[in-house]
């Protein structure tokens, strides 16, 4: 009868599915012992460099796999706290509260490594004639109570509304830029800011929006956008977010990039960080458009491993 043959088909199909599932579980289990995995997570600013490190390191060191995830600086630290992440990437210094949480949960101190610097560039559309902007002008554009809403307030030759682009209101870049531009304790304008969840999104947005101004890591510069030289005061000497200007500290909106571990890293994680602060790792920092450590700084960071 047809029904019985169909019955057989039905159950053999289920058996096949279960078999495949079992096979993949078994293969998973086997691979687990084969190599070491480092969970690495955090800042969206750092995610590009982190990926490039991971990719390169898999060629340098066989058998060690680095899993990179973005999600934001907070997410990386969150991972450290619940123990799902060995190395957290952060574009902001860890908060005391987070430090305390880790101490309570793991009984160990958080160790901080500086692995490079990031200049936060102020980007405009490539047809925007502006070349220099002062921190004060930025404050008038971004800060709560600031008066600039139209481009002609910035420069007489321009017109139209200023479209303010920003990173997510809780990302490390956002917090850093707000403090650098508005001063500690001040807020951005409450409404109307176009927020983007990724650094690249900000640059893409500005590339397609003629009236926009926005900030993002200097590593995200493309042909389609200009970056502005930033001066400390109006009419003063402006500095572009270049390697040299960030390294010598003349560019005003720059910050260090951090890695965090719970306690002194050991084994694979230690070797990985050691490699990151070596010349080879720092080359990648530069290739991704960030600012590398000077040889003296590299030495310093390596010292904090011991």
């Amino acid at each position: 009868m047809t029904t019985t043959s169909r019955t057989k088909f039905n159950y053999s199909a289920i058996a096949v599915i279960l078999l495949i599932a079992a096979a993949c579980l078994v293969s998973c289990g086997k691979r687990q012992t084969a190599g070491q995995t480092i969970q690495n997570k955090g800042s969206d600013t750092l995610v590009q460099v982190a990926q490039a490190w991971a990719e390169q390191y898999s060629k340098v060191k066989e058998g060690v796999s680095v899993q990179v995830a973005g999600g934001g600086s907070g997410q990386g630290v969150k991972g450290l706290i619940d123990g799902t992440v060995q190395i957290a990437n952060s574009s902001r210094a860890i908060k005391d509260q987070e430090r305390e949480q880790i101490r309570q949960k793991h009984g160990k101190e958080v160790i901080e490594f500086i692995v490079g610097f990031d200049g936060i560039a102020v980007y405009t559309h490539k047809e925007n004639p502006l070349t220099t902007i002062s921190v004060e002008e930025l404050r008038k554009i971004y800060a709560d109570g600031g008066s600039y809403e139209e481009w002609n307030q910035v420069s007489a030759e321009m017109e139209g509304p200023i479209i303010r682009a920003s990173r997510n209101n809780s990302s490390g870049t956002f917090v850093f830029f707000r403090e650098a531009v508005c001063g500690k304790g001040n807020e951005f304008k409450k409404t109307g800011m176009v927020t983007q969840s990724g650094s690249k999104e900000v640059v893409d947005f500005i590339a397609t929006t003629e009236k926009a101004i926005g900030y993002s890591g200097m590593g995200y510069k493309t042909e389609e956008v200009n970056w502005l030289a930033v001066s400390a005061a109006k009419g003063g000497q402006g500095y572009e977010p270049t390697l040299k200007n960030v390294q010598d500290g003349t560019y005003p909106i720059a910050r260090p990039l951090f890695l965090y571990t719970v306690g002194k890293p050991e084994g694979a994680a230690r070797e990985y960080i050691e490699w990151i602060v070596s010349e080879e790792g720092q080359k990648i920092v530069e290739a991704e458009g960030f600012v590398s450590l000077t040889p003296g700084q590299m030495q310093e960071q390596r010292a904090s491993l011991d």
Binding site: T37, A54, S65
Partner: peptide, 16 residues
Amino acid sequence: IIFTPGVPDTAPDKFF
């Protein structure tokens, strides 16, 4: 996640 470099480039490992 956005990127994981752990995926092998050669068969049969790249299937698992």
